[in-house]
Design a protein around this nucleic acid. Structure first.
Length: 482
RNA sequence: GGCGCCAUCGUCUAACGGUUCAGGACGGAGCCCUCUCAAGGCUCAAAUACGGGUUCGAUUCCCGUUGGCGCUACCA
């Protein structure tokens, strides 16, 4: 059996798209699952669309997602280089070989002629396609044109009649008639190959066994299959993934929300949550599990379970998944994330003990979707309340509350142990002594220490804050809410 | 326009001709738990696009229609 080799081949025209993340992920998972190799190749054959820094950004973002390539830029294997602009002579050799063998031809048609042809076809309501004008040039004509320095491209010859059928691992057999395929340009006038030539040459030279890519490539796959045949190579197996869609079911794009992986990263999504989420857009394990680590996915993934219809990128479910991953995360890991978050917050100058932050984590973990919400949803763990929620004051703070809390404070002050049980016992005792229900103390106290009416259990808050801080906040509240 | 792909709750999906009043999850509604808010548990509403076949039997297979999307560049 031949070795499994997959590749992710983005063009460095900007940031990594979430659709790209999923494509990369599936390639990575398939390789991992089958003991194969995952290759990263940069397709930068369009000079005009190059964006500086995009390659570095792509790699960095992939690594953030935990998708580590085995071979690629900076991680050379035997079949490099892995950047197409460094391989152009290779493509040129093959392009000219195809011309020599009569499987491709020079085309000297100007952009203007092509444009005109197009306009004419459009006006006549015909399919727009190249009219193969240069396919019929004589040897002398070609030599003369070449000699006079007229710019040219190389086009592949598509058979004039018949049809081509290829197998797709996800879609089964796909058939397209040759008459619907253009004599595709494979080498541009600037000497760079087009995607079609480069992808075929590289997938062969890099010994790629499975081409797993987006569905937008399905219509051009026949061209690739023809090229593999012309070059005398066996084509790899193809698997065309369903598209990721906007809520309105158009192809996922900017405008209708974030599409860059980096955007989700800065918005606070966990890498494992985003990866888990995109993995499930088009694939499922066959049972009802939904929460997976990258490692789990590696064990479970199979191309057979990839489906063929497009999937809407539903942020609400992503949010839920992020919360799930947050809840499952080991405390120490969450602690590190929280420290990072705090370091870039308005509390960055304050110092908190790990044990204190761990207390915050235990109290808030079930209540947050993002790490930053530890800060935004419960700022009272990091600073005393400056104001008190007026609705809660109206509902919970009665004229006698101040007096009750004063009494409660005295009880607390006398406490030696201030764990949850001791605090609860003390509060119950105080309520009984005052002859009121526990709620008459609990609610005003929550308001006093947190400034809000919602959040973790009161005793959890108190035990995290500690006795001294609790008493200080009670005093402040009595003063201010008088 | 031409060609191709796709079609189950609002969304992600399960079902690989019959254990199905079509299952799960997100979101929504309600109830329980409860010091609040969450989390959790329980319950409810919500789908096989349409029309023909094939078959004893179709969500499942075939055809057509409709719809959506993609491709149709010297972009990938």
């Amino acid at each position: 059996m031949t070795e499994i080799r997959t590749r992710f081949a983005p063009s460095p025209t900007g940031f990594l798209h979430v659709g790209g993340l999923r494509t990369a992920l599936y390639n990575y998972l398939f390789a991992r699952k089958n003991g194969g190799t995952f290759v990263l190749r940069i397709e930068d054959t369009d000079q005009s669309r190059k964006v500086p820094g995009a390659v570095e950004n792509l790699i960095e973002t992939l690594e953030w997602g935990g998708i580590r390539y085995d071979e690629g830029p900076g991680r050379e294997g035997d079949v490099g280089p892995y950047i197409q602009s460094q391989r152009i002579t290779l493509y040129q050799q093959y392009a000219h070989r195809l011309v020599e063998e009569g499987k491709a031809y020079y085309c000297f048609c100007s952009a203007d002629r092509l444009k005109e042809l197009r306009a004419k076809q459009l006006a006549a309501k015909q399919a727009t396609s190249y009219d193969r004008h240069c396919r019929n040039l004589s040897g002398e004509e070609v030599r003369a044109l070449l000699k006079s320095g007229v710019p040219y491209v190389v086009r592949m010859k598509i058979p004039l009649a018949g049809a081509l059928t290829f197998d797709d691992l996800i879609r089964g057999q796909v058939t397209i008639s040759y008459e619907n395929i253009d004599d595709q340009v494979i080498l541009k006038s600037d000497g760079y190959p087009t995607y079609h030539l480069a992808v075929v040459v590289d997938d062969h030279c890099m010994k790629i066994s499975h081409v797993i890519r987006g569905e937008e490539w399905l219509p051009s796959t026949p061209k690739h299959v023809i090229l593999f045949g012309y070059l005398g190579w066996d084509p790899p197996k193809f698997a065309h993934l369903p598209l990721l869609l906007n809520p309105d079911r158009s192809k996922l794009s900017k405008r209708q929300g974030d599409v860059a992986v980096e955007d989700y990263r800065t918005r606070g999504y966990l890498n494992e949550a985003l990866v888990n989420f995109v993995a499930l857009l088009g694939w499922n394990p066959g049972d009802e599990r939904e929460i997976f680590s990258l490692e789990d996915l590696t064990k479970e993934f199979s191309l057979e379970r990839v489906n063929s219809s497009g999937a809407v990128f539903n942020v609400e479910k992503l949010d839920w998944m992020n919360a799930e991953h947050l809840r499952q995360m080991p405390e120490q890991e969450l602690l590190n994330l929280l420290k990072l978050q705090l370091a870039s917050s308005r509390f960055k100058d304050l110092k908190f003990e790990d044990s204190y932050l761990l207390g915050v984590i235990r109290a808030m973990r079930e209540r947050v979707t993002f790490v930053k919400e530890f800060e935004s949803k419960s700022p009272y763990f990091f600073e005393a309340p400056q104001t008190y929620d007026s609705d809660v004051v109206k509902k919970r703070w009665k004229p006698e509350s101040g007096g009750y809390l004063k009494k409660l404070a005295t009880t607390f002050a006398g406490l030696e142990k201030t764990d949850k049980e001791a605090l609860e016992g003390a509060l119950h005792g105080a309520a009984e002594a005052l002859g009121v229900g526990n709620g008459e103390l609990i609610h005003p106290l929550r308001l006093a220490v947190s400034g809000t009416g919602s959040g973790p259990g009161l005793y959890d808050i108190l035990s995290v804050l500690g006795k001294k801080e609790t008493l200080r906040r009670i005093d402040a509240a009595i003063e201010r809410l008088r």
